[in-house]
Design a protein around this nucleic acid. Structure first.
Lengths: 144, 144
DNA sequence: CCTATGTCAGCACGACTGATATTC
DNA sequence: CGAATATCAGTCGTGCTGACATAG
């Protein structure tokens, strides 16, 4: 793919990406948990995570992450625990209540997505399925 | 594709969609114009558009659109003109200055996207290129 | 008179920068 | 002492609802 084709693809891709913002907003409106919150809960679902890592991963500044985490703790969805090896570090851990809320939110969001996917042709669905790994890799490349 | 496969795809797709938020934010940080602003300017770039149509298209309420349009007019990027046929209607038109700003913003945003795409393999780029129309159709399906 | 369109006022959420402990 | 980590304080952008003016 030459430079001109690359720029062409970038432009078309940008237009699609911009529209995603509206989809996310629509998803937020229906559920109880905002996208940012679900995203944070997902991050700490596998293992406790440092505040700075959460911030970097979420593409936000540390104070913004702290603020959100404090709210999540007040809601009982996460716990803040101190690190054994470094007293400066705060680890964020998902509570049982947080896991329940996360599972419920994910399922609730999958429903309309699955419905929209079902309305596409089999070829279109396959095209999206095949592109998903490439999209994930693209996101990593943009982040770096 | 059966129900189980559909749900599986929806879940993976959701994870990718969520990450797009961070990309958009990163794009916003670098440019002068926010994504919302660029989106609005793009909408009125072809032809003048009503406030209510802009709001519906952007997935926001009319008062929010009005507010943004007033700011854009203050910045000299758009003009508000009255409709001939209906005096209640306000049409938003892109100014020359607005067109320049829009072109510059779009080019500036395409650069890092093209760069990230260039770092992918030819197969991955093709996968994304093929999926773009399906993604656009998916977005329409979600909006309805 | 009722509806449609747009604007104004007041509010909430979530990000940011700058300043401040505390620990390494 | 300088660097790293997290938090606090204050601000800003951008969305929302409810109330309102004007035109159809």
């Amino acid at each position: 793919m030459n430079d001109a084709e690359l720029r062409q693809l970038a432009g078309e891709f940008r237009a699609v990406l911009r529209q995603v913002v509206y989809l996310i907003r629509a998803m937020d409106a229906e559920g109880e948990l905002s996208t940012s919150v679900v995203s944070t809960l997902n991050m700490v679902s596998a293992a406790p995570m440092r505040v700075s890592d959460i911030a970097r991963n979420a593409g936000i500044r540390v104070p913004s992450a702290t603020e959100q985490i404090i709210k999540l703790e007040a809601a009982g969805l996460v716990q803040r625990i101190s690190s054994d090896s470094d007293a400066r570090v705060v680890l964020v851990r998902l509570t049982d209540k947080g896991r329940d809320a996360l599972d419920a939110a994910n399922e609730k969001r999958d429903a309309p997505i699955a419905e929209a996917l079902a309305s596409l042709s089999e070829e279109e669905r396959q095209a999206i399925a095949v592109a998903l790994p490439a999209l994930a890799k693209f996101q990593s490349a943009m982040g770096a």
